[in-house]
Design a protein around this nucleic acid. Structure first.
Length: 262
DNA sequence: AAATATAGCAACCGCGTTGTA
DNA sequence: GTACAACGCGGTTGCTATATT
């Protein structure tokens, strides 16, 4: 298992639920941009890049989970035929699916096809949807990188295009919660960090959503309650991130973290 | 039941692009 | 205009669960 080396280096490997919780919290607070900043402020020993990836591929509430539906599979085949390995582009046409997911699907799919074709190598029967592609690799013969390039590069937003927290808040999360909770069983086994299920996390986020002056602090702490309102107003009126980091948010984070550990 | 192979998926890495000071 | 930082993407790796022998 690839876990962190020491205090000074960044942590790698599977995310724990505690980390997920922290990340969710901070994305909720700060929006899903500025990943390096989030990584620093959250106290997570992760790179911003890693945080973004985790959000995009796992924590984003817009994610669909589970196997690709038949129509999605067809769409992937069609779009790959059209766009080649432009996974992000393909993913934009499949709401709730990530480029990573599609890439993985394609990989296993082509592997299967390759094996099937090996078995029937004498008369390779190709499915119609694969008629334009090499069956043993992901490289299309009519790779359209240039060929069928759309005239206008549309600014479609994929669900995983990070667009700030307002999107997250505006969209009802009811269904998303269900999705998010479907795969919480992994990443356990790291001591006591697995105490929060995704359900718990969403509950907590709900509490934050209902932010009519609801403190997200340890009730037993003697510190003044930090409210969502206070934090957000501080955030938006602050000039420099450093100052903010060192004051209110830092305090909020510490309170949050200590509450989590206790 | 144990060993091995395979599938599925999460996460990392490197690099190109974009934004900002 | 330039240098640097951050972001986004595609390729790849490695782990875990499941199937097969």
């Amino acid at each position: 298992m690839r876990i962190q080396d020491d205090d000074t280096t960044q942590r790698k490997g599977p995310w724990t639920e505690h980390e997920d919780f922290q990340l969710l919290f901070h994305v909720h607070m700060l929006g899903d941009r500025r990943w390096d900043f989030i990584a620093n402020v959250s106290g997570l020993k992760r790179s911003g890049k890693s945080c973004r990836l985790r959000w995009v591929n796992y924590l984003n509430p817009g994610l669909k989970r589970g196997k690709l539906a038949p129509h999605e599979e067809r769409l992937v085949l069609e779009l790959h035929n059209k766009f080649g390995n432009r996974w992000s582009k393909i993913a934009r046409k499949l709401p709730g699916r990530t480029d990573n997911e599609i890439k993985n699907y394609w990989r296993t799919h082509t592997r299967k096809r390759a094996q099937e074709n090996k078995k029937t190598s004498a008369s390779p029967a190709r499915s119609p949807s694969f008629s334009h592609c090499s069956s043993s690799s992901s490289i299309c013969t009519n790779h359209p990188t240039n060929a069928s390039k759309p005239t206008t590069e549309t600014k479609e937003r994929s669900f995983y295009d990070t667009g700030g927290v307002e999107m997250f808040i505006k969209e009802g999360k009811t269904d998303n919660k269900k999705r998010a909770t479907t795969r919480v069983t992994n990443n356990m086994g790291e001591g006591q960090e697995g105490n929060h299920s995704m359900e718990d996390i969403w509950k907590d986020i709900d509490l934050l959503d209902d932010n009519s002056v609801k403190p997200f602090f340890d009730p037993y702490s003697e510190r003044a309650p930090l409210t969502w309102d206070i934090c957000m107003s501080t955030w938006w009126t602050m000039d420099g991130q450093e100052e903010f980091t060192n004051n209110t948010f830092h305090q909020a984070t510490q309170t949050f973290n200590s509450g989590l550990v206790d």
